[in-house]
């Protein structure tokens, strides 16, 4: 037990949390934007997965930033497809989302087998690249707190810093720009912005495109930093956990950050625990993020219901 506590309060564990949180946070922000626009984006999982594979395959032939952009673009394209079927062809958006998930689960394995020449499990024989870490070792020159600062802040992925910035950017967009107001209006009560002459369907489409782009970016981080290379089903439910994180974060960017950090912390725990305890079965450790998601969802729902009861709404 002592070893666990020592591990948990170490700087390396903090770095691990940031690493596990980043893909979740990006997907959660994507889910948040879609959700506020009135569309529950259940396809985050599939968008991430396709983002992973696209980033890995492109990174074999191009520099890392092109690969990251490709992952982002793949997600955005899926968002556009989703919007086309949901809004233009009036399909149920949940079903469209699951169609994308099924496409991703089968399609990535198919594309992986084609790209690797038959390997259906991993991209191990592809020379894929990684997203560089930001080296802030100059911080240790600061007297006193320098070394501590360095051990906490140095070594994160470029995309982690981008994700942190995006939390602020999304908040600013949602609450300080007219477009953010439009988006929230469209999600809240579409008839009102429609009557005010705001292009409702265009906004919804854009929100799904951005949502997909963020999920694809999360996929790029997952396949080019957390792990380098693609593994079949490597997102392992992260997109669905992100969906839970949107709800848990009370549909607010800062809440999304906190919820993603919570799930990221438990995932990090699942990463370090096998090294510390040999007697806890791996299956139970792998279960942790899912159990925590359900527990958080239930607790949050209880709280939300209490809040409603207080306001006298039944």
């Amino acid at each position: 037990m002592m070893e666990l506590l020592i591990t948990v309060f170490s700087a390396t564990f903090f770095v691990t949390i940031i690493r596990t949180t980043t893909p979740l946070l990006l997907a959660t922000l994507g889910g948040l934007i879609a959700d506020l626009g009135g569309a529950l984006n259940v396809a985050l999982e599939g968008m991430m997965l396709i983002g992973c594979l696209t980033a890995v395959i492109v990174s074999v032939y191009a520099p890392w930033y092109v690969a990251v952009a490709a992952g982002l673009g793949a997600g955005a394209l899926l968002g556009l497809i989703m919007a086309f079927f949901a809004f233009r062809l009036k399909a149920d958006i949940i079903l469209v989302g699951f169609a994308i998930n099924i496409l991703a689960a089968g399609g990535t394995v198919f594309a992986l087998a084609i790209a690797t020449g038959g390997d259906k499990g991993t991209s191990i024989n592809l020379q894929s690249k990684a997203v560089p870490a930001v080296d802030l070792s100059f911080l240790s020159a600061i007297p006193g707190i320098g070394p501590v600062l360095k051990s906490f802040l140095s070594g994160h992925s470029v995309l982690s810093w981008l994700a942190a910035f995006l939390v602020f950017a999304v908040w600013y967009f949602l609450y300080r720009t007219p477009w953010g107001l439009w988006l929230r209006g469209v999600g809240e009560y579409p008839a009102a912005p429609e009557a005010a002459g705001i292009p409702v369907n265009k906004i919804r489409t854009l929100s799904l495109v951005v949502s997909g782009a963020l999920a694809g970016l999360g996929g790029a981080q997952l396949a080019m930093f957390n792990y380098v290379g693609f593994t079949r089903d490597m997102t392992a439910g992260r997109g669905f956990i992100a969906l839970g994180a949107v709800l848990l974060g009370a549909r607010h960017p800062v809440g999304a950050l906190l919820a993603a950090l919570l799930f990221g912390a438990f995932e990090a725990l699942a990463v370090v625990m096998p090294g510390l305890f040999n007697d806890i079965p791996a299956e139970l450790i792998r279960m942790i993020p899912f159990v925590v998601t359900i527990a958080a969802l239930v607790l949050f729902s209880i709280r939300a219901q209490r809040a409603l009861a207080l306001r006298g709404v039944k």
Binding site: A104, A113, I114
Partner: peptide
């Protein structure tokens, strides 16, 4: 690879559940 069926499945769901 058999997984190509995932593409078929997704397209059918998309088309049938929409007003296609």
């Amino acid at each position: 690879p058999a997984e190509v069926i995932g593409v078929v499945t997704a397209i059918i769901i998309l088309l049938v559940s929409s007003s296609f």
